[in-house]
Design a binder for these strands. Structure first.
Lengths: 156, 156
DNA sequence: CCTCGGGGTTCCCTCAGGGAACTCGGCCTG
DNA sequence: CAGGCCGAGTTCCCTGAGGGAACCCCGAGG
């Protein structure tokens, strides 16, 4: 956990980090996404300490990105993505895209994504939701919005 | 910093986190993006400890996402995005989009993005780079790729 | 009644983050 | 040319989060 509380900042990036910014959180979310939904599975897959995994899962549940549900009459639980969480996975796909492009080893990307709609192995591409043309860092101006307050990140 | 070294994992998400996964790193990158390019500016804007800011900037420079360049004959430096870094900012835009949607307060989003191409205030939208239709968490199958090795995250 | 196995909880140790003070190296001013 | 300033770090101490391993709880099954 970041000692500093990011959630107080008037910045949507900081607020998102407040949910998945802690170490391991994105990887935990990734595991839940790909179907590793039980505590033991995630713990074994990531090699994360059980204590930290408990904290991260609770945090994700509190923020409503993951839901904890029993799957047995014994005290057994599995974790599943909520729709809020599924939208966070978009972030993971963009991360994966950057990692594939800039940090893959000679062998190639460790993971591929097949798009249901076209059946192709493909990658995400960022587009403007207005005009549909590409939208990247250099294609935008950053402006203060209605929820801005001066002090703390949020205003350029 | 995560104590565990994510860079060894066969997972592009983990590898990306190895670059910007530490606390503060995304916010530092954000500041550089919006034009807060000097040490003192970033430090004042974020309220981050000088020690940690030094570490984060060095880390970003080592990974080639940010470049440190002198801007005076005195020992003064500014940090600017490289093209590798600019592509990482895509990630920040997606983060901002999620934060705007799920965590904005009543006032509305703290920051707006105007797309140069169309001049509109808009948001990023994820599309398949093959067929151009929407590509989200639930629209893909995750498959092992050529760089996969069993053990550690990377294989579903 | 004992064991098993999932899902945590507890405890201790180390090391990273916060915060404030200190340093260094050139210009600038008197 | 002594002193001050200002940006850009560096150093130091203190606290608290992550790692790791052991322990616990609970219901099912033999």
């Amino acid at each position: 956990m970041q000692r500093t509380d990011f959630s107080a900042m008037a910045c949507s990036i900081a607020r998102t980090l407040d949910v998945i910014g802690e170490p391991w959180s994105p990887l935990v979310l990734r595991d839940v996404w790909v179907g590793l939904s039980r505590f033991e599975q995630i713990q074994a897959d990531l090699g994360i300490s059980r204590k930290v995994l408990t904290e991260r899962l609770n945090h994700l549940v509190e923020h409503g990105v993951v839901e904890r549900r029993p799957y047995d009459r014994r005290p057994r639980y599995e974790y599943v993505l909520t729709s809020k969480g599924a939208e966070l996975v978009d972030l993971l796909m963009v991360m994966a895209g950057w990692g594939d492009r800039w940090r893959a080893d000679e062998a190639g990307p460790p993971t591929l994504y097949r798009h249901h709609a076209c059946g192709e192995i493909s990658r995400v591409d960022l587009r403007c939701d207005h005009c549909g043309s590409p939208m990247h860092a250099t294609d935008v101006d950053v402006l203060p919005g209605p929820g801005a307050r001066r002090s703390s990140p949020g205003t350029g």
